[in-house]
């Protein structure tokens, strides 16, 4: 997809994603864990920068630091149900946020063929990687479809007037499901013409190689994981 001067192997990205997920979920907020978490929080930011996705980067920074500030300033000031809701909201953002944003980066920076090739190198069965590649391609389409449906509803002045949540969900979900069926058919035809159905080892035109940079990142991630388990 986007050309970048800082290009990592998909396998390295996967390793980073797992590391971030594990550390953000398991660590505490003191000492060594704090330093590790800080690294994990910064990583998605840096990586989004390298693919030039500034809009996502700014949103990430705003939302994440908003949540951290809220947590720090308000934890003692409010109580009762409101405290619980606010804390959970912020807690989810500070815990899952970096992992999800990094996942977004992985999706945006890896093309389907890169993903499938590198998974093949890791001897991952195609029965899992092909649906996953399709999924990653489909998420952005899903978002586009949703906004088209939303626009269409606004043009016909339905949407705000629908009070019943089930009816509203039906209005959104049914067109989405229709387009899903359509896309499944289209992709099947496309995959046939690309020869995905042939039971032969596929060849690849994209270059997938672990560079020195990849090895450095992998080692750093491994060290971080070890540190987080030892401390």
């Amino acid at each position: 997809m986007s050309k970048s001067w800082f290009k990592l192997d998909p396998r390295t990205k996967l390793m980073m994603l797992i590391t971030i997920g594990l550390i953000m979920m398991s660590g505490t907020n003191v000492g060594m864990d704090y330093a590790l978490r800080l690294v994990c929080v910064t990583l998605p930011f840096v990586m989004l920068l390298t693919i030039g996705n500034y809009r996502a980067m700014i949103w990430y920074v705003l939302i994440f630091f908003g949540a951290v500030l809220f947590e720090g300033l308000w934890l003692t000031k409010i109580n009762g149900v409101l405290n619980i809701i606010v804390m959970t909201f912020c807690g989810v953002i500070t815990r899952f946020g970096p992992g999800y944003v990094f996942g977004w980066y992985v999706v945006r920076s890896t093309s389907a063929s890169e993903f499938i090739t590198s998974m093949e190198r890791m001897h991952f069965p195609g029965a899992i990687t092909i649906p996953m590649a399709v999924m990653f391609r489909y998420f952005p389409t899903l978002k586009e479809d949703y906004s088209s449906i939303h626009d269409a509803m606004r043009m016909r002045e339905i949407g705000e007037s629908v009070k019943n949540p089930f009816v509203y969900i039906e209005y959104i979900l049914v067109p989405l499901m229709m387009s899903t069926v359509q896309i499944a058919n289209d992709l099947s035809a496309a995959s046939l013409s690309k020869g995905l159905g042939v039971n032969r080892k596929r060849t690849h035109i994209c270059q997938i190689r672990m560079t020195a940079l990849d090895y450095i990142v992998v080692v750093v991630m491994a060290v971080m994981l070890v540190l987080s388990f030892v401390y």
Partner: peptide, 15 residues
Amino acid sequence: FDVKDLITVGVFTAL
């Protein structure tokens, strides 16, 4: 069990 099925799996799992 062919590629068409795998694509169906992918798209619907996403949704």
